[in-house]
């Protein structure tokens, strides 16, 4: 564990908690893409199946359970509890156009052709594009609530910090995972446009459609 990975995990946890609290407190999921949240729940489910097969550390196990729990709780709030506030007219990104290519790629490019490894690879590739429905929704509505922009900022920063973690691990441990690194670079690049607006626009972020 190094400072970049810990900071990344905490930023990721913060994003997940910010979103869950925002929906719960405001009793509304307006401006939130339910499709992205479904993709994140799928990412965590396919990545953390090793919860059933191996124990790495208490930290690792707790965080995985928290991530999976919050992801499904968020999907539940969006599609069940506060369904009336779900912005279905703007949340129209075709996620099958993400899941199918990512699924195919995870069969073609992976470290090991075993079920757990292919599912892990699928989750890595899917996570890199999972935010697209959310960014698409914001570009359609033309604006995002301040709290939503903080959520996106934390979510974007988390994988950027992981990139530094991989540089650290390569230099100090010789650890190097090309699949995670390439997907992490793609994921972070997708946020760049948003980062620019977040930093320059301060509060109201309006991604030009």
């Amino acid at each position: 564990m190094n400072i970049f990975r810990l900071a990344g995990d905490l930023s990721h946890l913060a994003a997940i908690i910010i979103l869950l609290l925002k929906i719960w407190k405001t009793r509304s999921c307006a401006g939130i893409s339910g499709k992205s949240q479904i993709l994140f729940a799928l990412v965590f489910t396919t990545r953390y199946l090793d919860l059933l097969t191996s124990f790495i550390s208490l930290y690792n196990t707790c965080m995985k359970i928290i991530y999976i729990g919050c992801a499904y709780a968020t999907v539940h709030l969006i599609y069940m509890k506060f369904k009336a506030t779900y912005d279905g007219n703007h949340d129209t990104f075709r996620i099958e156009f993400l899941i199918v290519p990512v699924g195919g790629l995870s069969f073609l490019v992976n470290h090991d052709f075993s079920p757990l490894e292919i599912l892990w690879t699928f989750s890595i590739y899917l996570e890199s594009v999972a935010i697209l429905p959310q960014l698409f929704l914001i570009s359609k509505t033309g604006e995002a609530e301040t709290i939503t922009t903080h959520y996106l900022f934390c979510l974007g920063v988390y994988r950027a910090l992981y990139l530094f973690n991989w540089i650290w691990r390569f230099y100090f441990e010789g650890f190097f995972d090309m699949i995670a690194i390439v997907a992490g670079v793609v994921q972070t690049i997708l946020y760049c446009d948003f980062f620019y607006l977040y930093v320059t626009k301060g509060e109201k972020v309006a991604i030009p459609s």
């Binding site: 995990d9 965080m63 470290h111 441990e173 190097f176 995972d177």
Partner: peptide, 10 residues
């Protein structure tokens, strides 16, 4: 090499 590193990242 990767395989002597468990997937210890989240």
């Amino acid at each position: 090499e990767l395989d002597d590193f468990e997937k210890d990242e989240l």
